[in-house]
């Protein structure tokens, strides 16, 4: 039985801001099912008594530093790689009508 259906793949694609052709959707559905079929083995592990690991570092090893003010990028540097700019701002298609 499929773990993830073609419709779900389509839905997740939209969430991830990706668009696929019908052929790609078929291929991705099959491949994602293969991979998820493998990782569902994790369900067999007893994890009832453990906390999740989000980071291997302890807070003691990476204390926050003082919040000091220093020079960052200039506006010109920040905009230099943008595909489109106008009046010193990033330019995107109209969002509000």
């Amino acid at each position: 039985m499929a773990i993830i259906t073609r419709e779900e793949v389509e839905h997740v694609a939209l969430l991830a801001r990706l668009a696929f052709s019908p052929d790609e959707l078929d291929r991705f559905t099959a491949q994602l099912n293969d991979i998820l079929g493998h990782v569902t083995r994790l369900g067999g592990l007893d994890t009832s008594a453990v906390e999740p690991t989000a980071s291997v570092l302890s807070g003691a090893a990476t204390p926050l530093r003082e919040d000091e003010v220093w020079e960052g990028l200039t506006r010109e540097e920040a905009l230099a790689s943008a595909p489109a700019t106008e009046k010193g701002l990033f330019k995107v298609p109209r969002v509000l009508e």
């Binding site: 990782v39 369900g43 994890t47």
Partner: peptide
């Protein structure tokens, strides 16, 4: 089922 489970399993591995 997936993400939290994997993070907990990661604790077991550590």
């Amino acid at each position: 089922a997936y993400y939290l489970k994997a993070q907990k399993a990661r604790t077991l591995l550590r």
